[in-house]
């Protein structure tokens, strides 16, 4: 008879020791396998348990501050490692278009620390930044495969000089200031505008200046009055004399040597055309006038200089005397 006490597994009878494995399952293994054959158990283990485990793990991690920090740092490290790859390196700045001075200004404004990673460069913001530089009409930024940041510039074309707050500025057709100019004489080709709101009506001023091209040697500039209308300022016929008098230090009892053509708010060009026609016919602008007032087109008015007025009054008195 075999011993009644529990026997060690290795010594169990019916279990040949010479390497032959017992094919029969142990009771617990048998029970487990039969449990696994239950459809409900199988369904629970295969379909329900994995998502449930994942959810539980996720919920646990959600509550862990350290997990958040680690995840964020991990992501940043990953991004940094990626950004530092040579494929993404941008090593130089290529500026295209525009004048050398403008390019220098743009480069100064951008102030890039190169080499940088293309992932860290925000091209849209860069472009917006470049477009705030005075003198840049538009810009496009791109990264070339060779690893350069290429910024193509379109320079604003200066069309006029604007005297503003004591300095001379170049403005383009939209009235945007491009840059300062030291002297009027530096850009004699551009018309000069002045007055409040002058830069907001540059196209009209240009049109007027073109009309007045015949008088180019006499045009001093255009003055915006009351942000409404233009005055065309010409040098007066006596300007040379006046200048000579000033140079000799004499106190000249005289009005301004300039002649103003006061143009109306609307139809300024037509009014200027009329003035020019009058000038062509009757040499109007060679007369000793202070202003040609065309503000009311139905009533053009001439303002005479003081000298002319006294001459006129004298002549009129002579004529009355003759008549009398």
């Amino acid at each position: 008879m075999r011993p009644l006490s529990p026997r060690p597994l290795s010594a169990a009878p019916g279990r040949p020791r010479r390497g032959r494995r017992d094919p029969s399952p142990s009771l617990w293994r048998f029970r487990l396998e039969r449990l696994m054959r239950r459809a409900s158990v199988r369904f629970a283990l295969r379909r329900l348990a994995p998502p449930a485990l994942l959810l539980a793990l996720g919920a646990w991690l959600w509550g862990q501050e350290a997990a958040w920090v680690a995840a964020r740092e991990g992501l940043q490290d990953l991004r940094r490692a990626l950004a530092e790859r040579p494929e993404f390196a941008v090593s130089r700045l290529e500026l295209e278009g525009g004048s050398a001075e403008l390019r220098a200004r743009v480069a100064r404004r951008l102030d890039l620390r190169l080499p940088a990673s293309s992932l860290d460069l925000d091209l849209a913001a860069l472009r917006a930044e470049v477009e705030t530089v005075p003198g840049v009409l538009s810009a496009s930024a791109a990264i070339t495969p060779a690893g350069a940041l290429r910024v193509a510039l379109t320079e604003r074309a200066p069309v006029a000089l604007w005297r503003f707050e004591g300095q001379l500025l170049l403005v383009d057709a939209e009235g945007v200031a491009i840059g300062p100019v030291a002297r009027r004489a530096d850009r004699p080709d551009l018309p000069l505008i002045a007055g409040p709101g002058a830069n907001r009506a540059v196209p009209e001023a240009l049109a007027l200046a073109r009309r007045a091209a015949r008088l180019a040697d006499r045009v001093r500039g255009l003055v915006r009055v009351g942000d409404r209308r233009w005055d065309l300022v010409l040098t007066g016929p006596a300007a040379a004399e006046y200048a000579r008098a000033r140079a000799q230090g004499a106190v000249v009892e005289q009005d301004s040597p300039d002649m103003r053509v006061m143009l109306p708010e609307t139809g300024a060009e037509d009014a200027l055309a009329r003035v020019l026609a009058l000038d062509a016919a009757e040499d109007l602008l060679s007369r000793d006038l202070l202003a040609v007032d065309m503000r009311d087109p139905s009533r053009p008015t001439l303002r005479l200089t003081g000298r002319a007025l006294t001459q006129l009054l004298r002549l009129r008195a002579i004529k009355e005397g003759e008549d009398a």
């Binding site: 029969s24 039969r34 054959r37 239950r38």
Partner: peptide, 20 residues
């Protein structure tokens, strides 16, 4: 021992049938 034999036979059959 008889129980082990029964378990072996039953398990083989269940494995073949794929049912319990």
């Amino acid at each position: 021992e008889a129980g082990r034999a029964i378990r072996t036979a039953l398990q083989t059959a269940e494995k073949m049938a794929g049912v319990r």
